[in-house]
Structures are given as structure tokens and as C-alpha cells.
């Protein structure tokens, strides 16, 4: 039996210290991590459970200095229901509501949520590697996956669920989360504590695009032992007038085929500020900056919305199975913008 050690962290610093050792992994809600361990994707030697840390900074939601700060151990459900989040950042509340199930939302933490891995079937089922030429070379990299030897890239092919943005020829696995699209759209910053102290980083820098990955374990720009402790989102009129649209194959409990986290601020008939984050269509949480540029400063009409949606997918690379994600993704952007025009500014 493949055993691993389980430890409860006693402090953030101690968690960072312990998690920095080879073979160690941080554990919070565990809702994805336990699945991946059972599937043989993660093979930790030690699991450091941070869910018992009492530090209020990890567990609270607060507004200070024009910033919404969400502790990383806040449960998805708690943030979704939070009155301040609903009022000042509806896109974040909605994206959490539309994610997973009630049971999972009660377990999963915000920090863990953004760290969830792709749902790409080839990634989740290591037995696909048996079809690759050559022998298994179990390279234990950061993330403790069996994918260090590159066999995954030789077996993987695009599926219906694959990304169309930010892909490479051998990696089209899409980022599955919902919460992250709002964070990337609204310039969130993450607070990090590591063995060498605290730092912060734009959320947009957290996830590594396939083109920048040395191997499958390099999916996030965190050093060994680094713990995400909070998300800071600058408050803005666009954040207050924001929404999350998610298109999925069934009415609940499904990842997005395409989603859009969109915020809007109007100045008369002109767009003063607009933010568009895309999910389900990209390899990482995706900021549709080109689409925002089309709209910013101009009128918001069916035509400009369509033009923005076109711009968002100008660089899309599609395959037969996932070509629909381009028209779908465009429509999701238009749907979100249209929804916002119906809301009071």
C-alpha cells in the first residue's frame, strides 16, 4: 500500500517549513487532492494539513483601504454567501455558487480552489501513460505527479473539453475553475507565506501557461512550501457591477464549457471600465484584454459586444472536438455583457 505521513500544521510558518521538504504537499479542503491521490496522479510522501490553523487572517473576509481581502482558508460556500462579497463583488459570489456542489463548497477552500488541476482525462488517469512508448520513469517533481518524463504529452490529444486559448501543440488541457476568472479579471493579488517569509504576487502570474512549463508539475509559480494565505481584490465600480456566466452540460455540478467573469462601469454612454475573465476555454485563468480594449472608451452596443467577443478569441487554436468553444465563448461574453446592461450601473 502506498502510505504517506499526515501532519497537522501548528502554525503557518511551520506549515511552510514542513511543506518545503521533498515529497510534501499542503492539504486544505482536499476535495480535488484526495481524488488525485487515489487516481495515482499525486503521490505525496507527506501531507501537511493546514485546515486547523486558527489565524484569523486566513479565515476572514474584510474590506480595508479600498480592497476586498479574502483569507485563503475561507470555504467556497462562506465566500459565496458573504454579504460584502455579494454586494461589492457579485462576480466572485456567483462564480462560487455556480461551482461544484453544496457539499463540495462546504469543504473546499478558496486557496485550494485556485490550485485545482485540470480535468483533462489524460492527466487524471495515469494509465494512459501505459500507451506511450518507452518505460515509466517516475520522476517525482514538485506536485509529486508521475508526469515528469514527458510521456503524457505523447499520449494526450484535444477533447471536447480542451482549451482553445493559451495552448501548445501538445498541451490543450483546460483550467477548470470558476472563482479564478473573477480574480484574474479584477487584478487580484495573492498573499503568500513561504519558508523564506511573506511575499505577494499578481494573481495573473500564479498559473503557468503550457508554453512556459518545463514539466507537468510546474503549473503554479509557487516555490516548495509556499502557502497562499489570502486574495486581495481592488474594489471598483466595475467589480460592483459584475456577473459570472457559465455554460455547462447540465444544470448543476459541471465544469464550464465556457464561462465569463465580466464587470462593467459606464460613463454616460461610454464604457469607462470593463473586465473580462474567461474560463473553460483556456489553459489558465484568462484575461481577455484584447476584448476589453475594444470596448473601453466606446459605446456598448450589440456590434461592439460582438467585436469584443471576436477579439477575445482572435488567437484561438481549435480542434475538431472543441471548435464549438470559440462561438460558445463569444456568446458567453455577449451574454454576460448583456446581463450587465440590464443591471443598474
Amino acid at each position: 500500500m502506498r502510505t504517506f505521513a499526515y501532519e497537522r500544521a501548528t502554525s503557518l510558518a511551520q506549515a511552510a517549513e514542513r511543506a518545503s521538504e521533498p515529497g510534501a504537499m499542503l492539504y486544505a479542503g482536499g476535495t480535488t487532492m484526495l481524488d488525485l491521490i487515489k487516481l495515482g496522479v499525486y503521490r505525496p510522501q507527506r501531507v501537511i494539513d493546514i485546515t486547523f490553523l486558527e489565524d484569523p487572517a486566513l479565515r476572514t473576509i474584510e474590506v480595508a483601504g479600498g480592497t476586498l481581502r479574502l483569507g485563503a482558508l475561507v470555504k467556497m460556500n462562506q465566500a459565496a454567501e458573504d454579504a460584502t462579497v455579494k454586494d461589492r463583488a457579485p462576480v466572485l459570489s456567483e462564480s462560487l455558487w455556480l461551482a461544484a456542489t453544496q457539499q463540495l463548497r462546504h469543504m473546499a477552500t478558496l486557496g485550494g480552489n485556485v490550485m485545482q488541476r485540470t480535468r483533462d482525462t489524460y492527466f487524471r488517469h495515469p494509465d494512459w501513460l501505459d500507451l506511450a512508448d518507452g518505460d515509466a520513469a517516475e520522476v517525482e517533481t514538485y506536485g509529486n505527479t508521475p508526469y515528469g518524463d514527458g510521456r503524457l504529452t505523447t499520449v494526450r490529444q484535444p477533447t471536447r473539453l480542451s482549451a482553445v486559448l493559451g495552448t501548445t501543440e501538445t498541451d490543450t488541457a483546460s483550467y477548470p475553475g470558476d472563482f479564478a476568472q473573477g480574480l484574474v479579471a479584477f487584478d487580484a493579488v495573492i498573499e503568500i507565506t513561504g519558508p523564506d517569509g511573506a511575499r505577494e504576487m499578481p494573481f495573473a502570474d500564479l498559473h503557468v501557461r503550457p508554453a512556459d512549463k518545463a514539466n507537468e508539475g510546474d503549473y503554479a509559480r509557487l516555490a516548495p512550501g509556499e502557502v497562499i494565505t489570502a486574495f486581495r481584490v481592488p474594489l471598483s465600480p466595475a467589480l460592483a457591477r459584475s456577473t459570472y456566466v457559465k455554460a455547462r452540460d447540465r444544470a448543476s455540478y459541471a465544469f464550464a464549457n465556457a464561462s465569463a467573469a465580466v464587470g462593467l462601469e459606464m460613463d454616460g454612454d461610454a464604457v469607462a471600465d470593463v473586465r473580462i475573465g474567461l474560463g473553460g476555454v483556456a489553459t489558465v485563468p484568462w484575461r481577455a484584454a484584447a476584448a476589453e480594449d475594444v470596448l473601453r472608451g466606446g459605446p456598448l452596443t450589440e456590434e461592439t459586444m460582438r467585436a469584443a467577443a471576436e477579439a477575445a478569441f482572435a488567437d484561438a487554436v481549435t480542434h475538431e472536438a472543441n471548435a464549438f468553444k470559440v462561438p460558445l465563448g463569444r456568446n458567453v461574453i455577449v451574454q454576460a455583457l448583456t446581463t450587465l446592461t440590464r443591471m443598474e450601473g
Binding site: 500507451l131 444544470a251 455540478y253
Partner: peptide, 28 residues
């Protein structure tokens, strides 16, 4: 919802679990 998808290169099913093979939920 339901279709067992095939990776034609390997003649192998690609969505062999309930996370990937969809059935209706109550909301449906």
C-alpha cells in the same frame, strides 16, 4: 448527457468515470 466517448487512436474510452460521464442531477 450520456455518451461513452472513444479515443479512436487507441480504441479506448476516455470518460470512464462519473466525473466525466454525465448523468442528470436534480436540477436537470
Amino acid at each position: 448527457h450520456e455518451a461513452t466517448e472513444v479515443d479512436h487512436r487507441y480504441a479506448r474510452y476516455i470518460n470512464g468515470d462519473l466525473g466525466e460521464y454525465f448523468v442528470p442531477v436534480n436540477a436537470d
